[in-house]
Simulated scan of single mutants.
Amino acid sequence: MEIKVGDYNVLESGSVVCMDGYPIVFTFGKLTYKVIIHRDKGADELGKNVVFLMNAKDMNIGEIHLYLEDSVALASSTPYKVGNYNGKSLSFAFHIEHFTAMSNPKMPIALNYTWLQRDTTVIFEPTESGKVKIEEK
């Protein structure tokens, strides 16, 4: 079966029950992405609820931080470009609803995720500020 969302092909999609304090690790060949859900914090210092970080020493390792404290739901409005896999761009989309976690922060919540690909590649370029600019070509 093949599933398309716009011009993206769905590589993998599913749900994971997330327990408090346990990161979720996705591995595609040599690529590893760790999803860390912060239930006890609002947005990061720049006001973002979703932050993607690459390991400067190993571009095959990334972290996706999701900040939930002030939200009952958090979702990606567009897929996040996170790398390349098998010669195509790799993007991450997600949706979380955590109504019960608002009343009991230790309750498990469900992360609904979709890994997407399309016939482009992602280029990571370091900037003068030390951050990484991500472009799709």
Rank of each mutant, 00 (worst) to 15 (best):
C18P: 05
T120Y: 12
E136H: 08
A101L: 07
H95D: 14
K34D: 00
A73V: 00
F26M: 05
V51Y: 06
D40R: 05
T121Q: 15
P23Q: 01
K41T: 03
L111A: 04
M54S: 11
V132I: 14
V51I: 08
K88N: 10
Q117A: 09
A75M: 10
N60C: 10
K30Q: 07
H38Y: 05
R39M: 01
Y85W: 13
N112A: 09
P108T: 07
D70A: 03
V82A: 03
F124K: 13
D44W: 09
Y33Q: 06
E45P: 06
W115H: 08
I37R: 01
N112C: 14
E69V: 03
M1Q: 09
L31A: 01
Y8Q: 00
N104L: 08
M19R: 11
K137D: 13
S89N: 14
G47Q: 05
E63W: 08
C18W: 08
T100E: 14
V10P: 07
T100D: 14
E135T: 08
M107K: 15
T78L: 14
Y33V: 05
L46A: 11
L68A: 07
P126F: 11
N9E: 14
R118H: 12
D20Y: 08
L74C: 02
H38N: 04
Y67K: 02
K81L: 12
E97I: 06
C18I: 06
I3S: 09
